[in-house]
Design a protein around this nucleic acid. Sequence first.
DNA 1: TTAATTCCTATTGACTTACTAGGAAATAGA
DNA 2: TCTATTTCCTAGTAAGTCAATAGGAATTAA
Lengths: 141, 141
Amino acid sequence: MIISTKGRYALRIMLDLANHSGEKVKLKDIASRQEISEKYMEQIIAVLNKAGYVRSTRGARGGYQLVKAPKEYAVGMILRLTEGSLAPVECLSENALSCAREKKCAAVELYQRIYDAVNDVIDTTTLQDLLDIEQEKTKRE
Amino acid sequence: MIISTKGRYALRIMLDLANHSGEKVKLKDIASRQEISEKYMEQIIAVLNKAGYVRSTRGARGGYQLVKAPKEYAVGMILRLTEGSLAPVECLSENALSCAREKKCAAVELYQRIYDAVNDVIDTTTLQDLLDIEQEKTKRE
DNA sequence: TTAATTCCTATTGACTTACTAGGAAATAGA
DNA sequence: TCTATTTCCTAGTAAGTCAATAGGAATTAA
């Protein structure tokens, strides 16, 4: 049960953009700050862009910026977009094909509880919350 | 974020054994009831056996049985044994090597919340709970 | 002695992950 | 208009994981 680099990097990209609101931020700058491969980041931010979570400006002096305020982005939106469903098992995913043992399967109840618990956390935590945590952490240093 | 067949099958094996408490259950019977490859199951039950969660009897008329009562097995024990840590990210696992950005990383707080939520569910649900759910489900059919 | 069963180890095909690579398209500024 | 800068698009790839399959050794009841 793992959140891959795709989702984690997406979160860090969004956080980085949130930390530079108002500016057009170049991918190169995010990459150097976050120490992530620029080329790999391109692919990840492309997804965020297509979904309308960030706005891009092409060409020289171009860059990316957030479309909405940080508190408008639940981390669940970002993780689901980049990772796909965070369901612990396939059969709970949106597009799941029905399972033959569905009717008598006891375990699916357990999986649903796990799923609910995870969804609750990621849907009630926003980018702004992470910003606050970050600030708190650097203050403490 | 997925619980693989290893963990899911382990759960079903344990449930199957729980449904036949007192008997020595042959792998072949579990395999046919659960429609799981017998050879694959061997590998999974071997882990459960080594951990002492089941007791095996070798040779003709041998089989497996649970060591303790179903309510003594939290599903977390079984899943962690077969899946490894259910931490959403590597850095939260037991044996994780320390991360350079640990001190300022805001996201780790999120991951910890997810981890806590998952652990809470799997540590408070036992095999007996699943048995009860199963009974409830078949009664309703 | 035989049949039935668990135990042990190796191999494999398909898939996923985390990139790398190369260049096309767009745009600001000279 | 030209050039440097930046995003956009697509393809490839090495390493690792998953979900088995395979074959046979060891053990035991009858």
